[in-house]
Amino acid sequence: MQHRVRAVLLTPNNTVLLIKRIRPGIDPYWVVVGGKIEPTDASPEDALRREVHEEVGGEAEIVSLLRTIETDEERQDFYLATIDEWNFEDRTGPEFSQEGRGEYLLEEVPLTTDALDALNLLPREIAGVLRGAVERGELGAAN
């Protein structure tokens, strides 16, 4: 089973950093930052910090485990984290140089239900978790 870690990155601007994926033949969709745990990672949290650095050129402060989504093929641990500074030009992830992977665009999305509802955020379960947290006032403004 593949084990992945993901970071719901909250910014000082009351936004969440998401990656918009544009791939040939597929409607655009958004994902939270993250990837698979490598054998060289000391822990899932270390893997998450590495992935954030590779994908957005920043350093995350992990707050807590938000949700785990598990299927027969993979386990994804979604962490709530904060990030103060990032530079998408400093990203180093190997996926960015692979042919045929499409585009990876970093977007700051307001923490509102309207903004989240306007996205095709995958997986759908995490989209619902984030929307619910915003509605309850746990992450940002409700609308």
Rank of each mutant, 00 (worst) to 15 (best):
V32R: 02
G58A: 04
L17D: 00
V109S: 03
R4Y: 14
E95C: 12
L130Q: 03
T92M: 07
D77N: 01
R67M: 15
E107N: 08
E73Y: 13
G35T: 06
D84Q: 15
L80A: 10
A118S: 13
D46A: 15
G35F: 10
G140H: 04
A115E: 08
R136L: 15
V33C: 01
I22H: 06
E125T: 09
V5A: 07
E73A: 11
V5F: 06
V134L: 07
E61D: 08
R101H: 13
S97E: 11
G58L: 02
L106G: 05
H3R: 10
G25H: 04
T68I: 15
S97H: 11
A118I: 05
I69C: 05
A115W: 06
I126E: 06
R4N: 15
L139H: 03
N143L: 12
L105R: 14
L111P: 01
I126K: 04
L66C: 00
R50L: 12
V32Q: 12
G137V: 11
W30R: 01
G58F: 03
A60K: 02
I69Q: 07
F96I: 12
V31G: 04
S97Q: 14
E85F: 08
E51V: 04
Q2E: 15
V52D: 01
E107W: 03
L105K: 08
E89N: 02
K20E: 15
L9E: 02
R124H: 15
I62D: 03
P94I: 15
R67G: 04
L111F: 07
G137W: 03
W30N: 08
V31R: 02
K20A: 09
L65K: 03
E85H: 12
E54Q: 09
Y104M: 08
V63F: 04
E125A: 10
E138H: 09
P24Q: 14
I37Y: 00
N14I: 06
Q76K: 06
R75W: 08
G137K: 02
R67W: 11
A47M: 09
L9Q: 01
A127C: 11
D117C: 05
G57E: 12
E70W: 07
K36P: 07
L121S: 02
N87I: 09
G102Y: 04
L116T: 00
G34W: 04
E61V: 14
T11C: 12
L66Q: 08
R131F: 10
R101S: 14
F78V: 09
S64H: 05
D27P: 04
G35C: 08
R136D: 12
I69E: 12
E38P: 01
D84W: 12
E38L: 15
I37S: 00
G140F: 03
A60G: 01
V8S: 01
E138T: 11
I37Q: 01
H53C: 11
I83S: 01
D46C: 09
V63W: 06
E135T: 12
F96A: 07
T68M: 12
Y29H: 10
H3C: 05
K36A: 15
D84E: 13
L121P: 00
V8W: 00
I62H: 02
T68R: 10
A127V: 10
L106E: 06
P28T: 03
M1C: 13
D114K: 07
L65Q: 04
E108F: 06
R49T: 07
I22M: 14
P12Q: 09
E73L: 11
A141H: 13
Q98V: 13
G35P: 03
E85M: 09
L10I: 13
